[in-house]
Design a protein around this nucleic acid. Structure first.
Length: 203
DNA sequence: AGTAGGATGATCT
DNA sequence: GATCATCCTACTG
């Protein structure tokens, strides 16, 4: 996985991001996390996407070129990070939902409040961002080599381990098979159907 | 200007 | 499984 591979629709890129590594070099230290769970979101055709109703100040980064971070606030407390994919002008992004920490676990644990279990440090999109140290200041950040947040190739992931299923927590188009994760990995978050979920047509 | 509703997570029962 | 903390965005009038 390199930056050029991101120039494709989110649902194509999302499974390929499994096994890739996000690294954040902060003043207090470096944390690297292997991605184990992703979800694809697109634009006008995806009712669950922030970009469904068109471009707004919040979602503008989703419409930009691939290789940037789209960070948004969830429920007033959590930060969630997307990797923007696809073509400039068309909204497309992959939500990073969970990962396995491979560097800087002590710092990640400290950011998470000292919790013990390693497999839960970056489980769930909000927790992932907290462990990696991602906040609003990273919205729009370019994942260039040398930047504070970078994307790099990790260990190859056997295709047989990749699972696909419905997205978590979305109230619209909840049955779209746009969530990808590694089978049997303890760092993957639990599936949860949105209480507002209603049946819908879709891919 | 007002307000409904989150791409969540921790905690309690 | 239910509750709730907490606040921003975007839609409505």
């Amino acid at each position: 996985m390199n930056l050029a591979d991101l120039a494709h629709p989110a649902e194509e890129v999302a499974p390929k991001l499994l096994g890739a590594v996000l690294t954040h070099e902060a003043p207090e230290g470096t944390v690297s996390i292997t991605i184990t769970e992703t979800e694809a979101y697109s634009g006008a055709a995806d009712p669950a996407s922030h970009a469904y109703r068109g471009r707004t100040p919040r979602n503008a980064v989703m419409f930009g070129p691939a290789g940037h971070l789209y960070v948004y606030r969830s429920h007033g407390l959590h930060w969630c990070a997307n990797i923007v994919t696809g073509t400039d002008g068309i909204a497309s992004a992959v939500l990073v939902r969970a990962g396995r920490i491979i560097e800087g676990e002590d710092l990640a644990r400290k950011r998470r409040g000292g919790m013990a279990e390693s497999s839960r440090l970056a489980r769930g999109p909000g927790n992932f961002c907290q462990a990696l140290g991602i906040t609003a200041e990273h919205n729009g950040a370019h994942l260039l080599a040398g930047a504070s947040v970078t994307l790099s190739e990790g260990e190859p992931v056997p295709a047989a381990l990749i699972r696909v299923g419905p997205r978590v927590g979305v109230s619209k188009a909840h049955d779209w098979q746009h969530r990808f994760h590694l089978a049997g990995d303890p760092t993957v978050s639990a599936y949860r159907l949105s209480p507002r979920a209603k049946p819908s047509a879709g891919a």
